[in-house]
Design a protein around this nucleic acid. Structure first.
Lengths: 224, 224
DNA sequence: TTTAAAATGATAGTATTACTATTAACTTTG
DNA sequence: CAAAGTTAATAGTAATACTATCATTTTAAA
């Protein structure tokens, strides 16, 4: 068996970009640098002018890769969820015990993404930080239904579906596996945001704490 | 005891507006109509030009009430959470049983807000719908720390704190009451959004369903 | 190695947005 | 009735989010 990690490529919906950013060094720079800048400015204050300046290129060149910054954010989001999905699958593969498997998946969800499996040299922490702050804006959007139809959220939904299946694996009689899966995924971003900006709204100020909170919640919900 | 409802006024942080919209019919129209338009267009496509046109006034007049549309959204959000907090307090008042009290609060959280207790004739459903879609953008914002410092989220945080206390009332040994309270409040908006736009990501497609999901979650988490 | 094709850069321009400023008209209150 | 306060009308500005065009550079195929 050859090295799965090195030959793997996260398959991002091609209608998210005009030209595949992985196909050129400019494209790679666009994605890499956009992550720095979105993290720095937030998506509202981020624009292609700033990005062009940062990579020593021009706006028009960037527009050849991405239609607009919203699509770029969706691309970055897919990249994140793709990494998380990949890690989840690898880490939980062949685990016989359902509960152990689910817990491993949850732990992965709350961990820093391993960006090595991409063409981009990205800091995992930065990528996660963007998702914590900006992902909700990627889907709380007027065009969400069209974009969903176009498959822009398919990786996210697939991961939710995997989690849901794991939940059913633990307790086949549990009636809210989809809602619970979404709740955990949403929480994996939001609880970090709360910890950073609304300290008193959460009791979890570390990855371990958070993991314990959800572990407790899931164990009790699914086994009692 | 005089009528609490009729004399009550939801106390919204006065630095959210330049001139109190409740102080004039123009102000009331601004808030009323903005709810219609934000619901229709979403906050990104909504602007003061459209709002001015809708109420037969001018942009400059609106700018005398609100510094910008973001502040207006924060105002509307405070109004929503103020109503929910009020209802929660009224409904759970003097309930001796902790669990019953918490469940009542959760039920209120998932209900349509009673807008009668405001100066504005607003459709509760519309107000809730805006919150479902737009509230996350009100606080996932680059200036969130300053705005939080300025007290723009104090009603939201106070309600979270009340819920947290109720949770502790049910189980004083439970260690994550704040996180759990936030999780429920967040869920009270997000799960509706999922039901509308990502049908497969949730199992709850009615208020009752949703309420049952959280009731189950809370009962098991706090009593086992 | 030439040549065509593709990618990128440079520059310019447009429509819209999010305001600010000024002055005039109207309304309310003392 | 006069003064003060409120609103309307109009104009203007800086920034944003693009689009278009054409020149130049890079790459890849013959």
């Amino acid at each position: 068996m050859h090295n799965l990690l090195s030959s793997l490529r996260i398959d991002i919906n091609s209608s998210l970009y005009l030209k595949d950013p992985e196909s050129s060094s400019l494209g790679i720079n666009i994605v890499k640098s956009s992550i720095d800048l979105i993290d720095l400015y937030g998506i509202e204050e981020f624009n292609f002018k700033k990005l062009a300046k940062a990579i020593g290129s021009t706006e028009s060149s960037i527009y050849r890769y991405f239609e607009n910054k919203h699509r770029l954010l969706l691309y970055i989001s897919s990249l994140y969820w793709g990494i998380v999905e990949f890690q989840t699958v690898v880490q939980t593969n062949n685990m016989p015990d359902g509960m152990e498997k689910l817990m491993k998946a949850v732990e992965t969800l709350f961990s820093t993404p391993q960006t090595k499996c991409t063409s981009f040299e990205i800091e995992g922490q930065k990528l996660r930080h963007i998702l914590n702050s900006e992902f909700v804006k990627a889907y709380h959007h007027k065009l969400v239904d069209e974009e969903n139809e176009a498959g822009y959220f398919s990786i996210y939904k697939r991961l939710a579906s995997r989690l849901s299946e794991m939940i059913v694996g633990v307790n086949p009689r549990y009636m809210y596996s989809n809602s619970l899966a979404s709740l955990i995924m949403e929480g994996s971003l939001n609880q970090y945001f709360l910890s950073e900006h609304f300290h008193n709204l959460t009791d979890c100020h570390s990855k371990d704490n958070l993991y314990e909170f959800y572990k407790d919640l899931l164990t009790k919900t699914l086994t009692s």
